[in-house]
């Protein structure tokens, strides 16, 4: 076969052709699947929020969300109110869970912008839950989560997730054994805000002491754990003025 594939013209033409073909293919695929993907993400958000307040299908040791088919009805059943906090102003908004925390955080860098803080109020068997969404940085990429508090600001459940933490190490923040440790933890010491720290060298590995503001960190995932602690401190603090009005 005549090898004319070395000429510059051919190389340039080939590169152009390849870029066009691949670009078109991916663009077509991405735009045709966009709606389905967005819908999946919306369902996942609802599942995560419900998970944090204890509405899930967990069995001993396993982690399971409310089934995809039921999530819509379960969400409207258990989440009684969604509010948006803007400074002093608190408004009800049934689409608060769709607020993009990343965009809000970016807009809030402008001093004149009042950040919209979504908060979900849930009710399960007569007990009120206040679910705070949050977003922070792990080792490689974003981490985010939902923390459900009762009206005494004691943690009732959490759900954490991540975009790209190391498999087997940082990615374990979304495992039961890590998340379950948060249940019952306090975030306030009297009136001072302490947050919760994923602590190494924790002298309380069974997590019996619920008022030490610490949970046991994951071995080999120091930066992810630090990022998670920072996220909890920073984002819970923003909600604190409002949350304190609930505490009687």
């Amino acid at each position: 076969m005549a090898k004319n594939t070395d000429s510059n013209t051919y190389t340039v033409l080939f590169a152009t052709g390849m870029v066009l073909v691949v670009g078109t293919l991916l663009a077509f695929l991405a735009s045709s699947l966009k709606e389905k993907i967005a819908e999946n993400k919306r369902i996942e958000k609802q599942q995560n929020i419900l998970y944090a307040m204890g509405v899930n299908e967990n069995e001993e040791g396993s982690l399971a969300f409310v089934a995809k088919e039921n999530v819509e009805s379960e969400f409207s059943k258990y989440i009684t109110k969604q509010v948006v906090i803007e400074g002093e102003k608190v408004t009800e908004n049934n689409e608060a869970y769709l607020i993009d925390l990343k965009k809000e955080a970016a807009s809030a860098k402008v001093a004149s912008y009042t950040r919209k803080l979504p908060l979900f109020v849930g009710n399960k068997e007569g007990k009120e839950f206040y679910i705070v969404p949050m977003r922070g940085k792990g080792l490689w990429d974003a981490i985010w989560g939902y923390v459900a508090l009762d009206n005494q600001l004691v943690v009732q459940g959490v759900y954490f997730d991540h975009a790209g933490e190391t498999p087997g190490l940082g990615s374990n923040i979304k495992e039961r054994y890590f998340m379950d440790d948060f249940i019952g933890e306090h975030i306030l010491d009297g009136d001072t805000f302490k947050g919760i720290t994923a602590a190494k060298g924790n002298s309380d590995p069974k997590n019996v002491d619920k008022t030490d503001f610490e949970v046991d960190a994951i071995a080999g995932a120091t930066i992810t754990g630090d990022g998670l602690s920072a996220m909890l401190k920073k984002d819970l603090k923003m909600y604190l003025p409002y949350l304190k009005t609930l505490k009687k």
């Binding site: 594939t5 190389t11 691949v22 695929l29």
Partner: peptide, 30 residues
């Protein structure tokens, strides 16, 4: 037989990246 040898590494990279992105998108949707 049609890949120009000067840019073959880039072509390989594009093939892998495209395959992986297609798989990722399809999985995300279905």
């Amino acid at each position: 037989n049609i890949i120009p040898s000067k840019i073959r590494i880039i072509v390989q990279l594009i093939v892998v990246a495209t395959l992986v992105i297609i798989v990722d998108l399809v999985l995300k949707a279905f």
